[in-house]
Structures are given as C-alpha cells and as structure tokens.
C-alpha cells in the first residue's frame, strides 16, 4: 500500500451556497440584463393588450391579469432561462467544473436557483406597480411580493433547474422551459372562472398558480389574508419539493 494523504476538508454548505449565489448574481450585470428587460416588457405588453378587453377597477379579471403578468416574469427567468442555462451547462461539460470541486450538490443547485429568483425581483415589482396603475387596483397589498417572489421563485427555479439537468439534450431543456413559461402565461393571466374544468385541473398542478392566487387576493380592497397565507404555504411546499428535485437532478447529472 502507498501512504495515504488525508483529503482536504470539503466545502461547507452555507459558504459555498453563498459563493455560488454571488457568482451567479454577478452574471446579471452583463448577460442577463437584456433578457430581464424582455421578461418585464413581455409582461407589461400583455397587461396593455388585455386592458383592451378587461375593465379596470375592482374585479377578479383585472386582478388575475396583473397577478398573472407579475408572476410570469418569475416563470420567464427562473423556469425558462434557468432550464436553458443548466441544459447548456450539462451539454457542454460545464458541470464537470463543479463536480470536481468538493462542494455539496445542494449548494450549486440552490445557489443558482436563488440567483435566478433574485434576477426576477425588479421585473416583478415594476410589472406589479405598472399593472396596479393601469387597472386602478389598490397597491396596499403589494408588500406580499416579498413572499411571493422567493416562494414562487423557489418553486419555478427548482422546476427549471430540474428540467435543464434531466433533459437528455439542451434543445429539449429549452423546449421544456418555453412550454413551462407558456403554461404559466396562459393559465396564470386568464381568470380562473373563465377556464373549462380540465384546464382548471391543469392550472392547479402548476406551481406558479399559488403565487398568482396569493398576489391576486392581496390586490383586493380588503384582502382575505388567511387565503393568501394558505396559497403561500402551498407555494412554499411546492418550492421545497422542487428544490429537492433540482438537487437530486444535479447530483444525477454531475456525479455519475
């Protein structure tokens, strides 16, 4: 036997999660800003279009359009772009970089997902404020975005990461991300009452739905905070499950 050299200690979860988060966030400066603009303008454009058929003021339809458009920004960035990023990273062998570092799988998956969720904050706030102005909705409940963005962000980013990491080809990751975003658009922006029964079931399965419902309730003149809390609790539960799935998917993709 040869003499055994003791291995260096592995990186701990929290510092490495922070390092991944910081590195990913720094990418926003260059590459991400144009896409964040696209995400925001897409949502504002949808609200302007829908303003032609939906009346402003207090009404379920106006609230659904604004809440759906705001959460759509999260779906665009956290689900669609993250699925593309991980799909690309996996296809080009970029995951080898992380796989040969002694870093916990959760740190890479969660740090990246958290960064992508953070990218969405300005766009969601701008969209929600513009929407509230456009549809004459009360803005008193918008503070609930502080909970909606991280929880819907966790759920959608977890799902996006898992799609990107599990898709056998990067094109499929992109396709899944786009489809997920389209689902969030169609099922989030249209008022639930107008949807046929089977489509409503589909809507209930989409993680972003509970974020949309929480925000829509918060935009009411006298919000039912119990219902908001219940929606956010579902969102949190789905978020935990999605992030666990993302971590498992990362481990599967990176550490063969």
């Amino acid at each position: 036997m040869t003499a055994v050299v003791p291995p260096a200690p592995p990186a701990r979860l929290c510092p490495s999660l922070a390092a991944v988060y910081r590195a990913q966030l720094s990418r926003a400066r260059g590459a991400r800003i144009p896409l964040l603009f696209v995400a925001t303008f897409q949502s504002i454009g949808i609200m302007v279009l829908m303003r032609g058929v939906v009346d402003g003021g207090d009404g379920d339809e106006a609230r659904a359009v604004v809440a759906g458009s705001a959460v759509l920004v999260v779906a665009f960035v956290a689900l669609n772009l993250l699925a593309q990023y991980f799909g690309q990273l996996r296809a080009t062998g970029g995951l080898d970089h992380y796989a040969t570092l002694p870093v916990p799988a959760a740190a890479v998956a969660l740090g990246t997902a958290a960064a992508y969720a953070s990218f969405t904050v300005p766009g969601v706030v701008v969209t929600a404020v513009c929407g509230a102005l456009l549809y004459q909705l009360p803005m008193g409940g918008l503070w609930v975005l502080l909970a909606v963005v991280p929880l819907a962000g966790a759920a959608l980013a977890g799902l996006g990461a898992a799609l990107g990491l599990l898709a056998p080809r990067p094109e499929l990751a992109t396709l899944c991300g786009q489809l997920g975003m389209s689902a969030a658009l169609l099922l989030g922006v249209l008022p639930e009452a107008r949807l046929p029964e089977p489509v409503r079931w589909l809507r209930d399965l989409l993680p972003s739905t509970y974020g949309v419902d929480a925000l829509a309730t918060a935009l009411e003149p006298g919000p039912d905070w119990g219902s908001v809390a219940a929606d956010l609790a579902v969102c949190a539960g789905v978020g935990v499950a999605a992030l666990a799935l993302a971590t498992w998917a990362y481990r599967r993709a990176a550490l063969r």
Binding site: P7, P10, L89, T92, G93, G94, D96, H97, T100
Partner: peptide, 14 residues
C-alpha cells in the same frame, strides 16, 4: 478526488 486534486477540463462554460 475533489478533495485531493484540482482538475482543469477543456470546457470553461461554468
């Protein structure tokens, strides 16, 4: 291996 060696792969995408 990750705790004993440093690896430089051909790809820098990460």
């Amino acid at each position: 291996a990750a705790r004993l060696l440093a690896y430089l792969g051909q790809e820098s995408t990460a």
